[in-house]
Amino acid sequence: MSGNGNAAATAEENSPKMRVIRVGTRKSQLARIQTDSVVATLKASYPGLQFEIIAMSTTGDKILDTALSKIGEKSLFTKELEHALEKNEVDLVVHSLKDLPTVLPPGFTIGAICKRENPHDAVVFHPKFVGKTLETLPEKSVVGTSSLRRAAQLQRKFPHLEFRSIRGNLNTRLRKLDEQQEFSAIILATAGLQRMGWHNRVGQILHPEECMYAVGQGALGVEVRAKDQDILDLVGVLHDPETLLRCIAERAFLRHLEGGCSVPVAVHTAMKDGQLYLTGGVWSLDGSDSIQETMQATIHVPAQHEDGPEDDPQLVGITARNIPRGPQLAAQNLGISLANLLLSKGAKNILDVARQLNDAH
């Protein structure tokens, strides 16, 4: 009898209710805020589980004197976190989706994509230029951005401005803007500013005609071990179906173009009346040469937790077992079709030249 009692006690200790789920994140304040929001949602869904947040620095956090596009290494903000995932030191990792490459290392998958916040870019102005827009900034004003995508589009749109690289986390960039006289304004992701509670610093939100956004911008991705079915089931509740389908289309477009950090590629997606609209573009580094096109596809946005595919093969690095396969494939095909259209119009040449120029500098 006593033996059975011990077995029952052991089973209770090993039951999922007692389990601590370890969540990996970057150390920056924004990353911690984003991770806290994901953990809060998981806690609400699984009140019996405990969650421990483990923060670590990544290569991208450490190399702050070089433009991201020049470092010449993929997975700048993800490699150390993936290493911890691989060694079973954490069970899942919360990322900004735009930091996750469209091809993940073997053994990993994006197990959830959370509801997207505003994906557009924002302009934050130096205190002396508050009330201005990019259009009304004085001639030769210097605007800071760490992104080739932003610089290429904005140089084309605002030729009277000069664009220079600015690195560091959000706090560091804002301090550089406010305390030094080098920059009249800087460009940042609206979602990051909003998550930090800095709505009052948003001086201008850039519309798609001015600057399309990065693939996955404004959404959070939760990376897990691809074979860890328990954790895949656990994080599945975080999937937002519309965000998922938009981001599958965007990531398929980028992957098929073979774009990345070192080339200016941008997108804009919208879901309306059962249609998914995808606009994508590529630019030369100075913005003088560009190709942009829009395509659409009829896609039914499923309700969360309709029964999805059981075999769960990944699409552009994403596993969404609780979302039907048909809409996911339709979104992926839309991204591939748009990429093929741009490639047929000469996108590869623009991107190759951009890559060579970026590598040469």
Rank of each mutant, 00 (worst) to 15 (best):
S37K: 13
V38K: 02
A40G: 12
T41K: 09
L42M: 08
L42E: 03
K43I: 13
L49Y: 15
E52G: 12
E52C: 13
A55M: 08
T58S: 10
D61A: 00
K62P: 03
I63T: 00
L64E: 00
L68P: 09
L68C: 10
S69I: 11
G72R: 07
S75L: 10
S75C: 14
F77Y: 09
T78H: 05
E80D: 14
H83F: 11
K87E: 09
N88P: 07
N88D: 07
E89R: 13
D91R: 04
L92K: 03
L97H: 00
L97F: 10
L100G: 01
L100Q: 08
P101G: 05
T102S: 13
P105I: 08
P105G: 12
P105T: 11
T109V: 15
I113A: 10
K115S: 14
K115A: 07
E117D: 12
H120E: 14
D121M: 03
V123C: 07
F125L: 12
F129W: 01
V130L: 06
L134D: 03
L137N: 04
V142W: 10
R150W: 03
A151K: 08
A152D: 04
Q153M: 07
Q155W: 11
R156W: 11
P159G: 09
P159I: 08
H160E: 12
H160S: 10
L161S: 07
F163S: 08
R164D: 12
S165W: 05
S165A: 07
R167D: 05
R167E: 01
G168K: 02
G168W: 03
G168R: 01
K176W: 10
L177M: 12
I186E: 15
I186Y: 03
A191F: 04
A191P: 01
N200Q: 00
G203A: 12
H207C: 11
E209H: 10
E210C: 15
A214N: 06
A214M: 14
V215G: 14
L220G: 04
V222Q: 02
D230Y: 07
I231V: 13
I231K: 05
L232Y: 05
V235A: 05
G236N: 00
V237A: 04
E242P: 13
C247Q: 00
I248T: 05
A252D: 02
F253M: 14
F253Q: 00
F253S: 02
L254R: 04
L254I: 01
R255S: 11
P264Q: 09
V265S: 02
A266I: 04
V267K: 07
A270S: 06
M271K: 08
D273N: 15
L276R: 02
L276C: 11
Y277S: 06
Y277N: 09
Y277M: 12
Y277I: 03
G281M: 01
W283A: 04
S284I: 15
D286E: 13
S290E: 15
M295I: 14
T298N: 07
I299L: 08
H300I: 11
V301S: 07
D307W: 15
L315E: 01
G317Q: 01
I318A: 00
T319I: 09
P324C: 05
R325V: 03
L329F: 11
A330L: 15
Q332W: 13
L334S: 06
L334V: 15
L338V: 01
N340G: 11
G346P: 00
G346L: 09
G346C: 15
A354E: 13
R355G: 08
Q356N: 15
N358P: 15
